[in-house]
Structure formats: structure tokens, C-alpha cells
Design a protein around this nucleic acid. Structure first.
Length: 475
RNA sequence: GGCGCCUUAGCCAAGCGGUAAGGCACGAGUCUGCAAAACUCUGAUGAUCGGUCCGACUCCGAUAGGCGCCUCCA
């Protein structure tokens, strides 16, 4: 089945044609590990995960590289200011390496919680200083870079066209309006490839230009080329990376080998909080931890993100999380019911399932249209006949969704004896048709964080955790 | 100043030039001692105005409101 991606490079949906159908090569701009990853960052990681899963659903093998930026970007100014890694290090009284290790671990913990696959290649910037230096030297050799008293700059005027990802005319831009432009730069839009370190700079390496450290964009170019080659299939990142980071990666690659590094550039939109941007100053930054602490299964956030296309802004609200929580619970419920279902599936129904699967496949292949795909997931989840074949289809869909649809809630032995006693008492009360006592016990159990329900098959007990179904049957 | 995006039922949110997917919530019902769960049913003419067209939510223009980028940011 044809696969389409909206390509920032061409500004339209393009049919996906792999360079080598045997292996799709992808590069994703990963985290800068100097602070907690927010749920906004995670939205982008979820989008990248869906991309992987959809490619695999289509039978492709993948070689996916993601960088860990452990030598900081600059804090604020164009090419100056304190390094972010160093700032965190100073504030938290740790070494830059400790900071990087700490936040790298937290980042991967979040990915794990969200059932996001780890890329085949995870590469740290500080492990590739040599490759970066070689890259810069080559740019100088090719005439695309020059040295000033403070840095090595990329000369954008040497390119046939800059920028190419956006339609802006540089003359109309207010370069330097908010940032002081280094007077030694040849063009205001020249960016630093390599920066000469001040005396007391913590992270620095020896180079032909003395103790110094890399600029922001060079790491992705160097590592992308090392692991995926001069040209690979797909490059991804957040939408904010378009005008600067990705533009400059393209510039670097053109300067080095006259090629645009990737054929398809996919960008994920922002997550909004109450209709606006998430920012520390507004105090509306949420972490995955915050969602967990409210008792939600972290995968609830994943479902939540499927309600909106990755190229549209998604507004985060707790109401939305609550809705997603119900959805996750119901989908898992449906899976279990179908797994244990004994309804016959007539040929007609089997045909229907085949048709729905095709619709699902078409939706995910149309630029990862998850909201539409979810509507077909629901069609299956709400299928009238309950049969393991229906469960199998849900499981197949879950290879894309990654919501652990086959997960059931905690085991009986996790339930405290106190609760089990109350349940037993209630059972006796019900047998004696003492409804008043029975209801009172149910309230008491609820107060202690458990929910008890009466079904035809007996009582169901579950911990009140949001997103997991009620499947602890107590006979 | 420049570039760009968005506005669909209470909320979240798709597709589509030919009379609006889905999820959550609400309401009604089936079931149940009750409740819960499950299942069934139920709602929008598409920010406003104008144009093109046999026909527009879907194209074009204008207006209003909201948002993003041009600086580090997913």
C-alpha cells in the first residue's frame, strides 16, 4: 500500500520512495539533557515512534539514529551566552557529565513508560567530537567556513539558496533586533560551527583553533552522516527546529557534500497548554511524572496524543487526559472480552474485519493520520461479535498504537489482606441480601482505593488506577 | 515589520467540491437488589460576510478572534 508523508522540504504530501527498500534510514533530533523532558517533548517522541511503527507495519526494516545532546546549546543569545549544560551543572552543583547522565536516564525512563521504542542507534555528541572537527575542517576546506577571533562560522552567502525550508526573505527579517550580531560575521545569518572556549569554560576540547567546543548544529550533521550516510530517507524533529537547526544542518551538508541529507523532513507540531505555549515562566510545564502522580497509566498520554494529527497543535487539558483514560480502559476491556469471546464469526463479519483493517492501514499510511486510524480501532473494539480473531486484529493495531492493549490490572496478591477481608464480608452481606451493609462496605472499599463491581460471574475488584481494566475476578 | 497556521456539536478532534469519522461528557433505554461495567439510541450545516460553481465546511477574497515563528526551545 502506498505511503505518504507531508514533507517540509516540498511543502506537500509526498509518496514515500525509500532509497533502499531493504532498510529505511531515519535520523531524529533527540533531547538536550540538561533538564527534564516535558510532555511536549514527549509528544514529538510519540510522533517519531508512530513513524517507526507505521514503517514496520508496512514491512520495512529500520535503521533509526537519535542523538543525545550532552554538550549544551547556548542559553539564549544567537551565538553567545552560557552553555545550558554548564548552567544546570552550576545550579545543581554537579559536573556536566553528571547532569547529562541524570537527565538521559530520566528521558529513557519516560520513553519506556510510554512504550516508545529505543532507536537502533543512540549517539552522544561528546562521543563524536572527532567526527565533528573533521566535518568543520572539511567545510573550511570547501570554502564554506571562516574563522574569527571567537569562532568558526558557516558562511551562508556561499550557498545557492538559504534558507530553503521556509519562505522568508532574509532582507526582511530583523536579524539582530533581539540579539547582538557578532561584528566579525560576514553575514548576519552565519552561524557558529565551532566556538573558541573562554578561559574558565568547563567543557572544551583541543582543536586546530585551541581549546573550544562544538556549535549546536554540527553534531547532528556529523553523527547523521557517520551512521546513516550522506543521504538517508527521513529526518524528524519538532516544528521549532525547522527555521534554524534543520536549515543549518542542510547548509552544512550542502557545504560538505553538496547534498540535502534527507529526502523527507517530518516535523511534529507543538503541544499547547490552555491554548498557549508551555513555558517555565508561565508555570505551565508538565512532565510525564505529573500525569503518573495523578494515578493515570502513562500510556493514557499516548492515547491522548492520538486524538490529534501530529502536524496540528494539540491542546493539553486534564479533561482530555481523563477522556483518554476512559478510552484506554475500554480498549483493553474490549481486547480481554474478545480474547475470551466465543461468538461465531460468520464469513460476512470476517470480511468486515478485513475491510476495517484496510481502512486502518490506509489511515496510518496517509501521513500518519492517527485520529482517523483510531476511529477504525474503535470499530473493531466495538465489534458486535466477541471472538479471539477480533482480539487478534486489535493486537495487530497495537503494533502501531503501542498502548499495551493486552495489559490487565494488578494481580490478586497485590491486594492487601484488609481489602480482601472487606470484600469477603460484603460477599456474605450480599448472600444474606443485607443491601445496606453491602453498600456501606462498597463505600468503605472505595475509600481505601479499590473498586468492587458485581457481575454475573462474581465480583470484580480493581485498584482505582486510571487506564487499567477491571479484571481481577474474585469468585 | 516579515513569514505562516488555526477557528467543525459541551470538550478533544478527522475526512471530504455533492448534503459532516471517532473519542469523552450529557440524556434515554437494556441489564442489575442498587451501583458500576457493558451494550443500544440520541446531538452540529461548519467564526462572520461575500465570490466562483449545477453544488462548498471543503476553492478564492475580506472581516473578527486565537496562535506560532523570525533568539535557545519538541
Amino acid at each position: 500500500m502506498d505511503l505518504y508523508f507531508y514533507n517540509t522540504l516540498t511543502k506537500r504530501k509526498d509518496l514515500f520512495k525509500p532509497i533502499n527498500p531493504e532498510e529505511i534510514r531515519i535520523y531524529s533530533c533527540g533531547p538536550t539533557v540538561y533538564k527534564d523532558a516535558t510532555i511536549g517533548n514527549m509528544r514529538t517522541n510519540i510522533f517519531q515512534d508512530i513513524l517507526r511503527r507505521v514503517l514496520r507495519y508496512n514491512g520495512y526494516k529500520i535503521k533509526h539514529a537519535m542523538n543525545i545532546t550532552d554538550v549544551g546549546h547556548l542559553v539564549s543569545d544567537g551565538d553567545e551566552g552560557e552553555d545550558k549544560m554548564l548552567k544546570s551543572a552550576r545550579e545543581e552543583h554537579k559536573s556536566p557529565i553528571q547532569i547529562a547522565e541524570h537527565y538521559t536516564k530520566l528521558f529513557f525512563d519516560d520513553l519506556k513508560s510510554l512504550n516508545i521504542e529505543t532507536p537502533e542507534i543512540v549517539c552522544k555528541a561528546t562521543d563524536h567530537i572527532k567526527e565533528m572537527l573533521e566535518y568543520v575542517e572539511e567545510l573550511i576546506k570547501n570554502g564554506y567556513a571562516y574563522e574569527t577571533s571567537t569562532a568558526i562560522y558557516f558562511d551562508v552567502s556561499k550557498l545557492d539558496k538559504y534558507p530553503i525550508l521556509t519562505n522568508i526573505e532574509l532582507e526582511n527579517q530583523k536579524a539582530g533586533a533581539r540579539v547582538n550580531v557578532d561584528p566579525e560575521k560576514r553575514n548576519p545569518y552565519d552561524f557558529a560551527l565551532w566556538i573558541k572556549a573562554p578561559e574558565n569554560h568547563l567543557m572544551k576540547w583541543n582543536s586546530p583553533w585551541g581549546p573550544s567546543y562544538p556549535g549546536w548544529h554540527i553534531e547532528c550533521s556529523a553523527m547523521g552522516q557517520k551512521y546513516l550516510g550522506d543521504q538517508f530517507d527521513i529526518h524528524t524533529g519538532g516544528i521549532d527546529l525547522i527555521p534554524t537547526h534543520h536549515e543549518n544542518e542542510i547548509a552544512q551538508s550542502k557545504g560538505k557534500c553538496e547534498k540535502i541529507p534527507a529526502n523527507y523532513w517530518l516535523h511534529g507540531e507543538y503541544l499547547l497548554i490552555n491554548g498557549g505555549k508551555m513555558s517555565k515562566s508561565l508555570g505551565n510545564v508538565y512532565l510525564l511524572k505529573d500525569i503518573k502522580e495523578k494515578g493515570y497509566d502513562p500510556l493514557v498520554y499516548k492515547i491522548f496524543s492520538y486524538s490529534c494529527h501530529y502536524r496540528n497543535k494539540l491542546n493539553f487539558t486534564w479533561e482530555g487526559i481523563d477522556a483518554a483514560s476512559k478510552s484506554l480502559e475500554r480498549l483493553r476491556n474490549s481486547y480481554q472480552k474478545n480474547l475470551n469471546g466465543t461468538d461465531e464469526l460468520p464469513e460476512e463479519d470476517k470480511q468486515k474485519l478485513v475491510q476495517i483493517e484496510e481502512n486502518f492501514h490506509k489511515a496510518i499510511n496517509d501521513d500518519l493520520n492517527m485520529p482517523l486510524a483510531m476511529s477504525f480501532v474503535w470499530e473493531v473494539a466495538r465489534f458486535e461479535k466477541k471472538n479471539p480473531e477480533v482480539a487478534n486484529l486489535l493486537a495487530k493495531f497495537d503494533t502501531v498504537l503501542g498502548i499495551k492493549i493486552d495489559e490487565i490490572s494488578s494481580q490478586k496478591e497485590d491486594i492487601p489482606q484488609e481489602i480482601l477481608d472487606l470484600v469477603e464480608q460484603r460477599k456474605i452481606a450480599r448472600e444474606n441480601k443485607n443491601w445496606a451493609k453491602s453498600d456501606k462496605l462498597r463505600d468503605l472499599i472505595a475509600e481505601k482505593g479499590y473498586t468492587v463491581k458485581d457481575t454475573k460471574n462474581g465480583m470484580e475488584l480493581s485498584k482505582v488506577s486510571k487506564g487499567t481494566p477491571f479484571f481481577d475476578m474474585l469468585q
